[in-house]
Structures are given as C-alpha cells and as structure tokens.
Design a protein around this nucleic acid. Sequence first.
DNA 1: CCGCATCCGTTTCGATACTG
DNA 2: CAGTATCGAAACGGATGCGG
Lengths: 211, 211
Amino acid sequence: MPTMRSYRDGCAIARALDAIGERWALLVVRELLLGAQRFTDLRRALPGVSANLLTDRLRELEVNGVVTRSTLPPPAASVVYELTGSGRELEPIILALGQWGQRMPGPADRRPLSATSVLLYLRSVCRPDPAEQRTVYAVELDGRTWTIATSQGTVTVESGEPPQHDSRLRTDPETLNALLADPSLFEAALDDRTLVIDSGDAATGRRLFSL
Amino acid sequence: MPTMRSYRDGCAIARALDAIGERWALLVVRELLLGAQRFTDLRRALPGVSANLLTDRLRELEVNGVVTRSTLPPPAASVVYELTGSGRELEPIILALGQWGQRMPGPADRRPLSATSVLLYLRSVCRPDPAEQRTVYAVELDGRTWTIATSQGTVTVESGEPPQHDSRLRTDPETLNALLADPSLFEAALDDRTLVIDSGDAATGRRLFSL
DNA sequence: CCGCATCCGTTTCGATACTG
DNA sequence: CAGTATCGAAACGGATGCGG
C-alpha cells in the first residue's frame, strides 16, 4: 500500500514535498515530462526502482493530482501514465533543479546517463533557426526510439517512432549529451560508431546538434 | 551514520536529488534561507524531525556543499549552520515549489504553519515603497524574535532581536499569513489579540502589511 | 540547557520471484 | 505487459543518555 506520511506542516513547500517529495517521485515526473509512458517503459528508464515501489509512487502521484492513469482504447488497450496540468507545471522546477545539480561539485563520475534527461536538456536548450525547414529525426537511444522534430524555431520531443523521418540516428545518452555540448565531436562519434546514421545524409544529422 | 544511497544516475536532476532529496533535507534548507540557525532552533522549527535524523541531514548537506557548520567565536561559542553559496541558489527553486504547492488542491487543512515559510513569503512578495523611510520591526512568532527591516524598496528578514526597532509586534504564523493576504484584517487581529503591538504606534505596525 | 550519540520499534526501500 | 507477494536491509521516528 502507498506511503501515507506527511510533514504535517501547512507550509506550501512542505505540502508540495508531501506530494512529490518521496523517493523516486520526482524522477517519475521527469520521465513523464516527455509524454505519456507505460509502466514497463518507466521501469526501464529508472533502473533501480522496484516494480513494487513504482506502483506505489504512481498511485500516490495519481491521488495527488500529478499523474493520470488511463487505458488506451482498443486495439492498443495498454495502460499509460501521463502528467496532469498540475504535473506539467513542475517542469520549470525540475529543469531548475537540474541546472543546480549540474553546478554541483561532481566527483568526475562516469555514471550512466538517463536518456530522458538528455532529451529534456536538448528540448530546453535547442532553439533552431526559425527560417529552417521542418526536420523530423528518428533517434534510437538505449533501444528506444524517439521522435525529434524541429519546426519554426521550436523543438518537440516525443516517445515513439515518427510516421516519416528525414534522418534516423542511433546513439547512446552519453554521446548525445557530448554532442550537444560540443557539435564538433560529430565526425569523431561517427568514426568510432558511437553515433550511427541509419538514414538521411550526414549534413541533416549534424544539423540536430548545431542548434 | 548518514544516509549513503544514490540514484546512480548521471542526470543532473538525479544528482541534485541525491544531494537534497532525502527526507527533511529541503525543509532544513528552507529554514536556513532566513539565515544561520542553531541545531536547537532547527529542531523547534521542524516539529517531527528527530534529533539523530537532523544530525544526519546536516552532515549530508555539509558534505554535499549545501551547508556549512561553524562555531561562533567566544563568548557565544555556539554552533550554527548556514547555507553555502550553492545552498542559497536553491532559494528560487524552493519558492517555486511553494507556489506549486499552494496551487495544489488542498483539502482545507488547518495544519500548523511554520513561521519560516510565512516570513519567506513575506520577503518574497513585499515590495515596499522606495520613498518610504527605513523601518525596523521586531516580530515575535512562536516565541522567537525576528528582525524585519524595510528600506529603499527591499525587505530583509533576519533571525534575532534588532539593536533598535520602530515597532514590536507579537503574533502567530497563521495570523501573520492572513494579514499578508488581507491587510484589512489588521484591526480585527488587534481586537482578538492574535496580534499585539508591544511598542510603536498602530500606523507603523499596519504599514508592514500594506506593502 | 545544547549538541549530539545510542538504542529500538516501525516504516519504507530494494531485490527477487511470481501471477492474471 | 502490468503489476502483486514476499522478505531482508536500510531509513525513519521517538526516547533516553551523556559530556560540555
């Protein structure tokens, strides 16, 4: 059964933490910032969380009005979790927390990087040239495919395969992150095959990192 | 000994949560946003936290570079905890979390309100008239005295007794919060003595809530 | 009193196994 | 796929103790 402890403090900060302060809760929200996800996808994206606990957190977030649980209409009929409006309002806070965490004295750790966090970063920093044509990328990260579309100065990131794409890339979160920080690593990444272009030309692929 | 668990995720959000995501940690930071505090004051301000847990959290926050522990020079010689620069950078995030928490569907709870949260709110919303003369208030809340000074369009809130003051008020967090939301309740609060003016005239006291 | 340290019962977490 | 069941380990919460 879900956790039911509270700080018992009328303060709005404490009440917010009652809702999203339990362990893993905010990382679940982070995952859902890129769109609705299924239980199993959340598990894969959050290595270390047990199925048991993920169930509890999702239920708590649901009763707290942060997440909604819905069953897709047939023939899909799968269960998906999605942020509510209130949940989406956490985005700037979570991104700010990420910026704070980045400034922290990190002991040069080489820990695996979550795909979602890199994609969130991409979405938050990329401001494509508004004059540029709409470009749709299919990006495969950690075995999952994402749709990244640049259009009229904005970037959208969605889970799943795009209906059609201009370029299909395959890489890992660490490489993607490195390329966003320094686009000039593009050719080197192609060379050691940490980045693979499955379709589309190199110039189109490279443009994703030159935003 | 302190908690030593980690999300083991290179993502900056997860690393931030490793530093300040444990239970009570962010509320400790909240308390310290108004200035250095002693162990016992933190305990009183955070009813529900046990002494050993507070010790653990303070140590963790210390090793994570969020808090510094220092012994005041004699004759005080007391131990105080204070935010580092990194810790102070959490202020906008914590305030944003508070705004999010306030928008949450609160089930009309009448839980005790922490003094710090009301003072943080006061400091964040009050924009006094820059033309106004500097005014120093001594405000007693929950048995502790705070110094609130308005000067040149800014408000400062500090723990402790001011050297001199223009007005001395005594009230409780709930009343102070209500007065900030609706200054017209000032006279009613004086009537039922949930607000007491110990020194200074009523007009000066009232000005604190008309910012 | 203040700033903890130690002990101890309870809750939560994390891992593995299992089910509709 | 989307969860439950179970269980040992860790964290929490409260009480008490203790040196300065």
